[in-house]
Simulated scan of single mutants.
Amino acid sequence: METRRFLIANSLSDGAAYHFTWSSLDTAPARFAHTHDYYELSLIERGAAWHWVNGETALLSEGALLFIRPDDRHWFRARRRTGCRIINVMFRTESADHLVARYGDDLAGRYFWTDAAMPEVHLMRGPRMERAINTALELQTARRSLARIEDFLLAMMTRVVDYAVTGHAAMPPWLAMACQAAQRPEVFRRGAAGFVASAGRGHEHVCRMARRHLGITPSVYVNRIRMQYAAMALGSSDQSISSIALDCGIENMSHFYKLFRAHYGVTPRAYRTVHARNPVQPTGGASTARMPAQPS
């Protein structure tokens, strides 16, 4: 298939830092693929689309958020049965590259800056999907300034995207659904077995595809979600550590402590000491000043 290269200078009006479109995709196959000299963020807002990228084809469902790089060779077309409405934002590479230089700990090796063969895709659902749409649509009527596109990118990458549900544009839909299902306690409590059951495929096949598309095994993926759940509970409740471990589906406390330390670098107790402090209503400690009694 012929490949053409698109230039952002042909899309931006004078002084604009980004180009925004919100449109319905055609169902006809593309006559050519394209690359471009800019970054492109695309969100499947409604329906579904076929995406051909770097030699592979995937069906993108509603809520797919793609971080497309300049040299990704690709094209979209709507799925005939559902149609597709897509939000697309394109902007100069230099508008975002300095963000990764400044916030490397959060952004390096991810989003637009991954070396993977396929562009990164995140799957939005529920309130996170609504937040993604609302954040993107704010660009439609905003002044198309550099400050505005930088604010948008940081919001999408640090406040909207769910880090736990990450893959790339060629991820099979059944694997994406298993990733979504693994967010639920009734699934992650079962460990890798819960993930495999949600995928509805054989264990070996699921493990092989998880390594290909996620870069990790189902067990590692689920344990990451378990530890995020544990950290949230430690920082926001008085629940005992053993009870939290059981809520994560882990009965062996030694194994729980080992997993937690591997993810956060400290023990669960140390994590709670730091993250459970309440500066508004402190409950005690050396730094808490004694205040005179107040009438009830």
Rank of each mutant, 00 (worst) to 15 (best):
A245G: 12
A245E: 05
L246H: 11
L246V: 12
L246T: 11
D247A: 15
C248L: 09
G249D: 06
G249M: 09
G249P: 04
I250W: 00
I250K: 04
E251F: 11
E251C: 03
E251N: 14
E251G: 15
N252K: 10
N252L: 04
N252A: 14
M253Y: 12
M253N: 04
H255G: 00
H255I: 09
H255K: 10
F256V: 06
F256D: 00
F256E: 01
Y257M: 04
K258G: 01
K258C: 01
K258S: 14
L259H: 05
L259S: 02
L259N: 08
L259K: 10
F260K: 11
F260D: 03
R261K: 14
R261H: 12
A262T: 01
A262C: 01
H263D: 08
H263Y: 11
G265C: 06
G265D: 08
G265E: 11
V266E: 15
T267Y: 02
T267R: 14
T267P: 01
R269P: 00
R269I: 07
A270R: 15
A270K: 13
Y271C: 08
R272G: 06
R272V: 07
T273Q: 14
A276Q: 12
R277N: 01
R277K: 14
R277Y: 02
N278L: 08
N278E: 10
P279D: 04
P279M: 04
V280F: 08
V280S: 07
V280K: 13
V280A: 11
V280R: 11
Q281N: 11
Q281I: 02
Q281G: 00
P282E: 02
P282C: 04
G284K: 07
G285W: 07
G285S: 02
A286W: 09
A286C: 02
S287P: 00
S287I: 04
T288K: 03
R290C: 03
M291H: 06
M291P: 00
M291C: 08
P292Q: 12
P292E: 09
A293L: 13
A293K: 12
A293H: 07
A293P: 00
P295Y: 03
P295Q: 10
S296G: 01
